[in-house]
Design a protein around this nucleic acid. Structure first.
Lengths: 351, 351
DNA sequence: ATCACTTGTGGGAGCGCTCCCACAGTACCT
DNA sequence: AGGTACTGTGGGAGCGCTCCCACAAGTGAT
């Protein structure tokens, strides 16, 4: 028993051929056993498995990749600088879901940042070399050329938030519209009259949808929609501060704010405090994401929970399907695969 | 010009051979140009480069890996669950440094978590398959079998904090001893008399060294070392809270605390606040790491800065050397490569 | 007994590179 | 003129797999 990482006499790692010799079978048969083909008799399978164990055989990935024209790797592409990756709890949850979904797979996950131009060129080169079997795209802007590049290279991809209602790539998203709607509905039910919103970047489709949910909830309740109460942030704490400052200037008498991310809510909270507004007594505050920040805020923040881990999981499943379908070049055409997962309002003390 | 990701007539990616035919040279020559060999005439080189551009040739990594027996990938092994990876600013800084050092390299970085048993088995399998040319080990415990596994598989590796003073692997570390010493020296200079410390986990060599620095600084100043003032934490916020609670019970009259990580300092701060102690008036507080937490704490935390990004950079350089040396099997023997980078005390308002 | 399948198996061909040996050409000595 | 050295180049062999065709052996209908 050589266990993992066995060597043969010559100090090299054992090869398929050596395993075959040892088990007294042919090379093809060993390959079938390794790859779990059903077309092998039980006796032969057992003999091969014994030989594999004795020699400590581990398949050579490079040889496999070359012969089979696949890499068994997929990329998680983060079109943001590393700093934002670590600052946004979104990414860590996503990574957790993706990792979990991949755990019982042979697939290797590559985390690739494409925040700077330089990194993007590197990524383009990487994809052109077909070093991954598929890609997961998260947090993509409307005008990003990446999806087109992937399509041109015929690399299967799944996008986390569709870029528009006409998204052509398979996508997984949470119900941004419903999330925005439920947050505002909640504020209305709490008796709030002048409800503002700090939107995300409006070149992000999901952020637009949240605003649409906000509008519709007001309409449904017969409230007027005051455009001055809608201010875009950029999903950062600083952006939340700026937006909140702007809102207080425009409408000092507002009594509720729906911030479309917890991080922006944290920024808004600071400004409200400094302005002497009490939360929730004077101004109710609702966030989005239900991240750790929401739980640790003072007071704890009511927030719209998205099942981000679940989204990561779903993306992997979609992508693995895409890759499987892609192999024999069947290309099932335009059967679009778009998934929308429900959100949930988590009530705490800020509203 | 096909640009990136060109195809030939048959829809396949162009190969070396096709580039050679187009440039009117042999396969070997193209290979030499691609790999930057100096043994090519300028004219030939130009012709080959033109052909490469026209066909949009991109080398096939799998074929290269198979033929040359290398992968052009290195692993950053994080023996922690993902949660800690995101919680600890240490890792994000490290990743930044590593990424920067790798930016002008062909090397691909793989981020591999090995927090759970399952993940560790997967990692072992991964390493046994020699899917990386080298590995970076960060935050390794004294009894971790990983370094031995790497050695047995003859995979070059660099460790971020040596496991002991007899570390055999090349390592990069910050001056933990000096950092601990300077923190305490600073507190003494500020007139503090009863200085406690919240240590890290004592199975981490670096944490031990910080405590040694703490002891020596007290000795140097002629202060007695009171063992009751040394309480181990586990580098978490909760651990900081527990340790601080313990310290206040043991010695209600302490007037300074040196927490050996900012995160633990944050926990300690909470407990001090709840106990009605003012910082720095009643108790001075010094942290370690100089992370974002330190800057945002109230009051801003004095902290020992480690050049973590620089350490990441240095680790990559060491590892690339190891890999290069490893290739022709020269094995320069025990010429140990241990790097220690200086720390710096960043004074803020908590002390 | 013959034919038509099915099941399990062996091994050739080939994936696209790198490594290295062979050799032509040139330069500079004896 | 011959020898020696170096430079630049072509192409064979081989890396360790997967794919697929060929084929032996078994099964059951005719």
């Amino acid at each position: 028993m050589a266990g993992h990482g066995g060597r043969n006499r010559s100090g090299r790692r054992p090869t398929l051929e050596e395993v075959a010799a040892r088990a007294g079978v042919g090379r093809g048969t060993v390959s079938r056993v390794i790859n779990g083909s059903p077309r092998v008799s039980d006796a032969t399978r057992a003999a091969v498995e014994a030989a594999v164990a004795e020699l400590g055989y581990v398949p050579n990935t490079a040889a496999r990749a070359l012969a089979a024209n696949r890499t068994d790797a997929i990329a998680l592409v983060v079109p943001e600088p590393e700093t934002r990756f670590f600052a946004e709890p979104y990414f860590s949850d996503m990574l957790k879901g993706v990792g979990a979904a991949l755990a019982d797979t042979e697939m290797q996950l590559l985390l690739i940042f494409a925040g700077s131009d330089r990194e993007r060129r590197r990524l383009a080169q990487y994809l052109a070399a077909h070093r991954v079997d598929g890609a997961l795209l998260v947090s993509v802007h409307a005008d990003d050329p990446l999806p087109d590049l992937l399509a041109q290279l015929e690399i299967p991809a799944v996008i986390s938030g569709p870029r528009s209602e006409h998204e052509t790539l398979p996508s997984v998203d949470s119900d941004n519209y419903g999330g925005g709607h439920s947050a505002v509905q909640h504020l209305i039910a709490r008796g709030r009259k002048k409800i503002a919103t700090i939107a995300g970047r409006l070149d992000v489709y999901g952020a637009q949808r949240r605003v649409e949910g906000y509008r519709q909830a007001l309409c449904d309740a017969g409230h007027p929609v005051d455009e001055r109460l809608i201010v875009p942030g950029d999903f950062t704490e600083e952006g939340g501060r700026r937006a909140m400052t702007e809102l207080l200037e425009r409408c000092p008498d507002l009594d509720a704010v729906f911030a479309e991310s917890d991080v922006m809510a944290a920024g808004a909270r600071q400004v409200l405090r400094e302005a002497g507004r009490r939360i929730p007594d004077d101004v109710a505050l609702v966030g989005y994401d239900d991240s750790a920040i929401a739980r640790h805020m003072d007071p704890p923040l009511t927030s719209v929970r998205q099942p981000i881990e679940g989204m990561g999981h779903a993306m992997i499943n979609l992508l693995l399907d895409e890759i499987a379908d892609h192999r024999p070049a069947v290309s099932r055409g335009l059967e679009r695969r778009q998934l929308v997962l429900p959100t949930e309002l988590v009530q705490r003390h800020s509203s």
